[in-house]
């Protein structure tokens, strides 16, 4: 893909903003990890730890009115797109104060007012929804775009090819953001994926492969893609190579029953490539910010996370009658 205009890299302010957002996602998820381990959360959580640069590097370019669809590993996209930590935390705690009133949970966090069409429990389920939203945006002609976050696992679903075909034919303002975290649930993706995922996309549209643990690289690739989408040139595919540090699901050790699908050494190696530590080192090396400023960010995030967890815990349980009113608009099920 050719380098495009106005892509000289993020400003210092943008870098700090992305650092803050990545750290927020990490700390929120660490809290979810701990609360899951102690049995405080009623349902499954799929954590995004290690992949924060992907969501944040893309969403840094988006307006509130732009659309995103996400995956079962969707907390990071929700927060990167501007979703409220408190409302998300309360949702995962199944409280009526949650962003979906406790009806969706971790796998379905959504905030339509922020353009977040929702995390999705079906692998590849967001692809066509994003294409539909992009089609609506194109018809409206108001410059809105849509981003579909999905993973290497979803790239083996048929809708991946189908939506690339429609999006290209109709020049939809859509970005296919494939976060290749190397695992399709409990199976290494290389065992179930023929060829390179980006090569599949190249049959349809400009496709680029970036280091998904380098937020600046993701930001640059997304800048080009957003530029193409907004200027009516059609869809772009980005594959961000990253790694899922946690298991598919927090209850994984119990589910594996002693079985293994990856080496601990591999996890340790990738843990060292932490995108947040990497950005922190960059900020310090380039004297973009002093350590004290970064520590202040850490402290303020600690407060946000603590408040969000307290808010979630204190919330009233979800209303068991509510579901009857939500199946249809204007009618009770």
């Amino acid at each position: 893909m050719t380098t495009r205009r106005n892509n000289s890299g993020p400003t210092d302010g943008q870098l700090l903003g992305m650092y803050e957002r990545m750290l927020l996602i990490r700390r929120i998820e660490e809290r979810l990890r701990d609360d899951s381990a102690t049995g405080k959360l009623p349902g499954a959580v799929h954590l995004y730890i290690g992949q924060e640069a992907c969501g944040v590097g893309v969403c840094a370019h988006l307006e509130e009115t732009d659309w995103v669809t996400s995956t079962h590993r969707g907390h990071g996209h929700f927060l990167a797109k501007g979703g409220e930590p408190k409302a998300m935390m309360a949702e995962i705690w199944a409280k009526r104060t949650g962003v979906c009133k406790g009806m969706g949970g971790s796998m379905h966090v959504a905030d339509l007012s922020k353009g977040i069409l929702g995390a999705n429990g079906i692998v590849g389920g967001g692809l066509a929804i994003a294409a539909g939203a992009a089609f609506a945006a194109k018809l409206d002609g108001n410059g809105r775009i849509a981003v579909c976050f999905f993973g290497d696992g979803a790239s083996n679903q048929g809708v991946f090819m189908e939506t690339m075909n429609v999006a290209t034919l109709w020049r939809l303002p859509l970005i296919f953001m494939c976060e290749n975290n190397q695992f399709s649930e409990f199976t290494p993706s290389k065992e179930v994926t023929a060829g390179e995922i980006a090569d599949r996309a190249r049959a349809f549209m400009p496709a680029t492969v970036v280091d998904g643990n380098d937020v600046i690289a993701v930001w640059r690739a997304a800048a080009d893609a957003v530029d193409r989408a907004r200027s009516g040139e059609g869809p772009t595919f980005i594959e961000a190579k990253t790694y899922r540090i946690r298991g598919h699901i927090e209850a994984e050790p119990m589910m594996l029953g002693g079985g293994k699908y990856r080496d601990d050494v591999e996890i340790q190696e990738w843990t060292k490539k932490c995108p947040i530590a990497r950005l922190r080192a960059h900020l310090l090396e380039t004297r973009t910010a002093p350590a004290a400023a970064l520590d202040d960010i850490e402290a303020s995030i600690h407060g946000i996370v603590t408040d969000a967890a307290a808010y979630a815990e204190a919330g009233e349980p979800a209303d068991p009658e509510l579901g009857f009113d939500l199946m249809f608009a204007g009618a009770r099920a």
């Binding site: 659309w67 669809t69 339509l112 069409l117 389920g125 692809l127 066509a128 929804i129 994003a130 294409a131 539909g132 939203a133 992009a134 089609f135 609506a136 945006a137 018809l139 409206d140 849509a146 048929g158 809708v159 189908e162 939506t163 075909n165 429609v166 034919l169």
Partner: peptide
């Protein structure tokens, strides 16, 4: 053609696109 158009044969995507376009404000 903005309001009525042929699609590829891809029902798995068409049903999903209907959801996305409706969520984004159209009557599909």
């Amino acid at each position: 053609r903005d309001r009525i158009r042929n699609t590829p044969i891809c029902e798995a995507t068409l049903t999903g696109m209907a959801v996305g376009a409706a969520a984004a404000g159209y009557r599909v």
